[in-house]
Every structure is written in C-alpha cells, then in structure tokens.
Design a protein around this nucleic acid. Structure first.
Length: 492
RNA sequence: CGGGAUGUAGCGUAGCCUGGUAUCGCGCCACGUUCGGGACGUGGAGGUCGCUGGUUCAAAUCCAGUCAUCCCGACCA
C-alpha cells in the first residue's frame, strides 16, 4: 500500500506494469492488443477459477461450452445488444488463404473463399447461447436452465492494458433462463452476491454492490448489477457484473415455454461474468513497491521453503528437516514449494518470491537446525520472526489466515478512508481533484445530469449502492430531489 | 479511431540535432571463491538499432509509410 493519490497516472501505470513484469504474470504478445498470461499469472487464474466454479456448482449451475463464432445474423437479433457490441467486433470473412503469386513465401486471402455470412468472434455469448436455448426449452419443466461457460472472448478495444483491458480475455459467463421475472431477478442478485463473496473472502477485496444507471447498463439488459472496488490510486474498478436481461433475448431468439397453466410465454434471462481483469484488481489492490502481494487463498504456492547451506552435506541435513515441514504443512492443506535449487542463492530467492507475492517464506539454515527453529517471513508486512519448529504447521496455518484477514482489513480501511460524502458540486470537483476515491453524492436520476458530470469531471456513477440506507436530499448539480446517494468515481 | 510521446542485446539505456555499421549497467555462459536479504573476481558470448521503402558514396542517425507500446480523449469485463 505504498501508493498515494498524488501519483500521476503515468507513474501509477508504470508501477502497475512493473509489478506485472516483476511478478512474472503476463506480457504483451506480438498480436495486437493481446496478452500472454505466463505460468504464474495463469496459476492465479486457475485458483480463481476453482473457487468460483465451486461457488457456481454450489448454487446449482453446470458448465457447458458454446462456439467461438457468432454468425452476424445472430448478433443482429437483439437490437440493443447488437448496437452495443458492433463497434468492437473482430469479423471473419474468409475461410482460406493461398500462395501469393507476386511474392514467394507469402500468403494472401483467397478471394474465392469468401463466407456467405460473416462470422463474428464472440465479444460475449448471449447470441449463440440463446439461439441454442431455443432448442432446449419447451416447458416449465426445462426451467430454470442454469449454465456457465469458461471461455475466451474478443473485444477490439482501442486502448489496452494487461489484464484490465485486452483485445482477447478469459472469463466466465453464466447464462440462465427462468419461468418468472422474480426468479430471474433473484438469480441476478444471487450471482452478484457470489461475486461479492468471492472478492471479499478470496481476493481480500472489499466491494460495493449496486446497480448501474441506464447509461452504464449492459447492452440488451434491463438492469445491470455490479461490484465496484477501489484501487490504490483512487480509481474505481468494476470487478464483476450480473445482468437481468428480462425477456429481451427470449423474444429476439423466440425462446418460449409452456407454463404449468398451459400458457405460452417467453422465458426470463440473466447473464453474469467475471474475467481475468480480476487479476488486475488483485495487483492494484494489494501490491507494494516490492512486487505482488497475494492473498493466501489465491496463492498458487502459499509457503516457500528456502534452505540456507554450505555444501552438499549440510543441504542434505537441512532438506531432511525441510521436507518434514513440507509434509506437515501439506497435511494441513497448505501448498508448499521447497526451493532447493543450487543455481540461485538464498537472497536471490527471497527477492524472487517477494516479487511473486508468495504469502509466507520459511528459511532454514544451520543455526535453525541447532536451535530447533525456522525463520518465518510474511509477505504482507515483510515481518520476520524466528519460530520453534514445534507445531509449526498449526502456526503457519494461523499465519495464513492472519495474512488473509490483514489484507482484507487493510484494503477495507483504505477503501473506507477514501469514501467521501459530498453535498455540493464544487466540493465534489475539489475532492475528485485532490483525493480521488469514491464519492457519495445526491443525483437527480437523470441521464442528462449524469452526462454533464462525466463531461465536466470525468467521474461516472459507478453504481447506485444496494446496501446503503436511503437518505433523501437534493441533487448536487441541479438541486432536484434525490432519494439516495449514489457512488461516483473515476474508473478504469 | 483523434492528439502527444516512445521503439537500440533478455531488461534498462547512451549515441540521433551536427550521417562514417553501436555505449554503459543489469542479466546470460565458463572457472574459482561464496551462500542467514538480489555475492565477488577473472575470462567470454550475445545487436540486420521495431518493420518497409526513400535520400546518400555511406543511415541507428535525415525523409515517408507502417506496426507495436505508453499517456490524454472516445469505448469497455
């Protein structure tokens, strides 16, 4: 938490990119706007996947997989959806290349192999999925249909940034169908809560749950719920969304079911997703100038053991002890790496694992063997202490819990210190300029006012918070009545 | 996609204005000494200067185009 709001965007960006590089998470690919997720970065994603996937299964969802390509005619069917995504689609127009007669060794598009209908590389899968659901749903007995897909999508973004916004990204998208609007809304809210719980319990990232204003709504949705998190530079990041789609897609793709009463009706839909952007959130929420800081629950390796030795014989004796510790920790469900490489020195390893964010490091050397101790260092506070080996597994287990909680508390304190309640537009601008962070202020509910604020200050309404007591007041801009404060911030 | 900046070895850079085939640090390799916070010594390897074209006897250097990255804007998980 070394960052402060005075940090210029460029510096913060450099800091962020440094962490991504130093922690060995990802790099730019030679392919425009695309990212290569490196093994350590991907391992974190796999931990996220595993935790989320379990939460989805526990709430009755199943996984499936749908095509990468969306025929253009599918995408066109839901008008709002089509409009929203049209500007950022990669389009496949041909299915064959041929040797260039002009230049040896070069390939050109074979103009004789033009597709009759263009295929869009999915920017999201509503269109293909609803086209499929049409065939899966006839009766109320087929409902609810609760499906999730882990996939990649492509959005041709103009400005990219590792993890936060890349042309291709990995995500999870849930698509559900329900017999009633109430049930679909309940599902939308349920999944929002799943995301919030994941963010807080696993990522140690406090989030504010809310609904988007009409301007910020997902293309084709009636209501978009979201979780918003605050980053260390005072900007907000949308960490997940859950959409109530009403009957828009059911009508567009003609998905009807026969109810218990024998009446034919369109189904009610939801969709919800989180992406590899969450890794970006993790970086920006917890990292410090020494590199990444991982919450134990998402660390691919929770404890690393580094031996300190001179010569083969000493390493042998230390390894014996280290492996005992490793086994004991693993029996407590802790993931442990014993790094006995003799190609790197201890200090090098310490720095390396610090940059990668490994929560706990245990060092064992000859002094420890003599004293029956180990040196335990925690990544979040960088504190070191010498611990007796007795009950080390239990102590480390507690330490990991402690780190997880500490990270959450630290992020929560930071977030709460940076929520400002503001009652005048001048004060709003001043806080935004001087401090950044979240601002709670009254707004008259109109798109015009929202647009004006955005144009004049670059801040947007991140959400209309759900878990906040209603408090009537007057709009800070127009003076018109307002029923509750809404959450403003500059956003990623 | 509009405005600005940048691109030289794996990374960070000097050189560019005032053209003459490239500087330094880290890293890498070998050997030795080391090993409780990114070791030290000696020796060594590595670059078609983002790419394409132009000007020139000669281009990292000047010109044009193009691609990529960063910042601002529009857009967004």
């Amino acid at each position: 938490m070394a960052k402060d709001f005075s940090t210029r965007a460029e510096d913060y960006s450099k800091w962020y990119n440094d962490i991504v590089a130093k922690a060995d998470l990802a790099e730019h690919s030679a392919v425009r706007g695309c990212m290569v997720i490196k093994p350590h970065g991907f391992a974190i994603w796999e931990k996220m996947q595993a935790a989320l996937d379990k939460m989805f299964k526990d709430t009755g969802h199943v996984n499936a997989y749908f095509p990468l390509f969306v025929p253009k005619s599918f995408l066109e069917k839901e008008e709002g959806h089509a409009e929203g995504f049209a500007k950022e689609c990669a389009v496949v127009t041909h299915y064959r290349l041929k040797a260039d007669p002009e230049q040896k060794g070069k390939l050109i598009v074979d103009q004789d192999a033009e597709l009759e209908e263009e295929l869009i590389i999915r920017p999201t899968s509503e269109a293909v999925i609803w086209n499929t659901y049409k065939g899966w749903i006839q009766s109320y007995r087929d409902l609810p249909l609760l499906v999730n897909q882990w996939a990649n999508v492509v959005r041709w973004e103009m400005r990219t940034r590792l993890f936060l916004r890349t042309a291709e990204f990995l995500w999870q998208e849930g698509h559900t169908a329900h017999a009633t609007a109430e049930e679909a809304v309940a599902e939308t809210e349920k999944m929002l809560n799943v995301y919030a719980e994941f963010a807080e319990k696993y990522m140690a990232l406090p989030v504010i749950k809310g609904v988007k204003t009409a301007n910020e709504r997902f293309a084709g949705a009636l209501e978009t719920y979201c979780i918003e998190a605050l980053m260390q530079d005072g900007k907000a990041l949308q960490a997940g969304t859950s959409h109530f789609l009403g009957q828009n897609f059911a009508k567009a793709f003609d998905v009807k079911f026969t109810s218990k009463e024998g009446k034919l009706d369109y189904v009610w839909a939801t969709s919800w997703g989180v992406s590899t952007r969450l890794i970006g959130a993790l970086i920006m929420a917890h990292s410090d100038d020494n590199g990444l800081v991982l919450p134990p629950k998402l660390a691919p390796v929770q404890v690393v053991i580094v031996p300190i030795y001179k010569g083969e014989e000493e390493l042998g004796r230390i390894s014996e002890k280290a492996l005992q510790i490793k086994t004991a920790l693993e029996q407590k469900g802790i993931s442990v790496k014993y790094d006995d490489r003799d190609t790197q020195r201890p200090g090098w390893k310490f720095a390396e694992y610090e940059m990668k964010g490994i929560p706990v490091r245990i060092a064992i050397g000859p002094k420890d063997l003599a004293n029956g101790t180990v040196e335990v260092a925690r990544r979040d506070t960088l504190e070191k202490e010498s611990l007796k080996m007795i009950d080390l597994d239990t102590k480390v287990h507690h330490l990991l819990d402690n780190i997880q909680n500490n990270l959450y508390q630290k992020a929560l304190t930071f977030r709460d210190e940076n929520i400002h309640r503001v009652d005048s537009y001048d004060e709003f601008k001043k806080v935004l300029e001087d401090k950044g962070g979240f601002i709670l202020a009254h707004w008259d509910g109109s798109s015009e006012t929202e647009e004006r604020i955005k144009e004049e200050t670059k801040a947007t309404i991140r959400c209309i918070p759900l878990d906040m007591k209603k408090e009537s007041g007057t709009c800070m801009v127009t003076g018109k009545p307002s029923l509750q404060r809404v959450l403003f911030a500059k956003a990623y």
